[in-house]
Simulated assay, not measured.
Amino acid sequence: MKKYDIVKMIKEYLIVTLGVILVSFGLQYFYAPNDIAGGGLSGLALVINHYVPFLSTGTLVFLGNLILFVIAFLLIGSDFGAKTIYASFALSFAMDFMEKVMHSYALTTNLALAVVFGTLIIGTGLAIAFATNASTGGTDILAKILNKYTKFNIGRALLMVDLFVVVFGAITFGLNKGFYSLIAVVINGLLVDKVIDMIGKYKQKKAAEELNEEKVA
């Protein structure tokens, strides 16, 4: 492997790590302490954790991801699969670290604020991962598959998958919190597409600038 390829790979994994940290922070400091199951395997983990409290959300996310790793490799590719495995392990570790070591707590108990700020942080983190051809695992893998084999944008695909989790969240935590979870899922789907589009335009602009510099040189 060339030095350039190694540097590029390290840079991509660092970017994925940033996305994972943002997702973990949003989940542990906004969603989890307010019982907001905002979709995804992490949202489903919050529901299961409610009924089986001795299993942490991080552990449940890890176990759930094992089922979907093979699908990621077979249907999407090894690059996406490898990054997704890394991101899911990192997400489980980060969530458990914030929960057990940092003793994460609700930065706000206002459900509306928790949804808005939590979704902004989580959606940005997910978009960063998707833009680097990765995901945090779980239902994000299903959304990526829908995105690859249909005409759905990644955000809309994520929205469709997450609605399933929201229903179970509403049954578990009540219609009031289920309503806020629904809002979180809708905002998240729209935000992911927006941030990915912004990142794509930035990459195109940067590539054009580098090409112009080469021509000048």
Rank of each mutant, 00 (worst) to 15 (best):
K3H: 10
Y4H: 12
V7R: 07
M9T: 09
M9R: 08
E12Q: 14
I15N: 03
V20I: 09
G26Y: 11
F30K: 03
Y31L: 11
Y31R: 01
D35W: 05
A37T: 02
G38N: 05
G39C: 06
G43Y: 00
L46A: 13
L46W: 07
V52D: 04
T59M: 13
T59R: 01
T59K: 03
L60E: 07
V61D: 00
G64Q: 07
N65R: 02
L66P: 00
I67M: 08
V70C: 08
L75K: 07
G77R: 02
K83E: 02
T84H: 08
A90S: 08
A94D: 00
M95A: 06
F97P: 01
M98S: 09
M98G: 03
M98T: 03
V101F: 15
M102R: 00
L107F: 15
T109R: 15
N110I: 12
L111Y: 15
L111Q: 11
A112C: 10
F117W: 11
T119H: 09
L120K: 11
G123L: 14
G125A: 10
A129D: 10
F130Y: 12
G138E: 05
D140Q: 06
L142R: 00
K144D: 07
K144E: 10
K151L: 15
N153R: 04
R156D: 02
L158Y: 01
L159E: 05
L163M: 14
F164H: 01
V165K: 00
V165Y: 01
V167Q: 03
G169Y: 08
G169I: 07
A170D: 08
F173D: 15
G178C: 10
G178P: 05
Y180A: 12
L182V: 04
L182G: 13
I183T: 07
D193A: 09
K194M: 12
V195F: 07
M198C: 09
L211Q: 08
N212P: 00
K215A: 13
